[in-house]
Design a binder for these strands. Structure first.
Length: 209
DNA sequence: ACATTAAGTGATT
DNA sequence: AATCACTTAATGT
């Protein structure tokens, strides 16, 4: 198992010395699809590093509405958790396992030191911030400037991209919830997409063509 | 066969 | 684009 993680870390071009520290002080956490990793009142003092699988990061408001922010894939880390823990602030985000995933949990206590000690780690953290920021911009853009039909198509394509599968196992209701829309609207738009030969619909299942 | 849940549709705002 | 009210289709027991 450790060998597998070591391999993953090497691919991230981190110093060998740092890699052995990460391996020594971290711990493996396996989560199943749908499992909550970081909740609204999470006090976890660990920084998650995604080895395999996909995590979904969301922001939720007072009424329990959720806004999708971005996905985390293998090699990614939750930039927010670093900021929150270093500043000792509470995490107001929600992280959910989109698929069965393996995480390498690193105690926050080490992170601060590593940022100073290792160039590669500092770069890794900054890069993580940069790409999260870019992805955030993209979702903000889609929410504010795109029509529902465009957003829906983007949602489907993103899903395909991130899962590597043309098959999406979701009900219209679930999709509507994710897009903060209603089931009826999603059904109608999906029907359009089907007529345009862009997708094929089945019960609880959509295939992208 | 019946109940339940998912998806389709027209009308209205 | 959202909501309502209703229909139709698929699926589980």
């Amino acid at each position: 198992m450790k060998a597998l993680i070591e391999h993953a870390l090497t691919n991230m071009s981190l110093e060998p010395e740092l890699i052995s520290e990460i391996l020594d002080y971290g711990r493996l956490k396996k989560v199943r699809a749908g499992q909550l990793i970081i909740g609204p009142d999470s006090t976890s003092k660990e920084m998650p590093l995604v080895i395999s699988g996909i995590l979904k990061v969301m922001k939720q408001d007072q009424d329990g509405n959720e806004i999708f922010l971005y996905y985390l894939e293998g090699g990614d880390t939750c930039a927010m958790s670093i900021a929150c823990c270093i500043e000792g602030k509470l995490n107001r985000f929600k992280v959910l396992a989109e698929e069965d995933s393996e995480l390498w949990m690193i105690p926050m206590a080490y992170v601060d030191g590593w940022v100073q000690k290792y160039n590669s780690f500092r770069k890794y953290v900054f890069d993580a911030y940069q790409s999260r920021f870019d992805e955030l911009l993209e979702t903000i853009e889609s929410i504010s400037f795109m029509n529902m039909d465009q957003r829906l198509l983007k949602f489907l394509l993103d899903k395909k991209q991130v899962t590597g599968s043309y098959v999406i196992q979701m009900t219209h209701q679930q999709i509507a919830r994710e897009l903060n829309s209603s089931r009826v609207v999603v059904s109608r738009l999906l029907k359009q997409l089907e007529r345009q030969q862009k997708i094929q619909q089945y019960r609880n299942r959509i295939e992208i063509l």
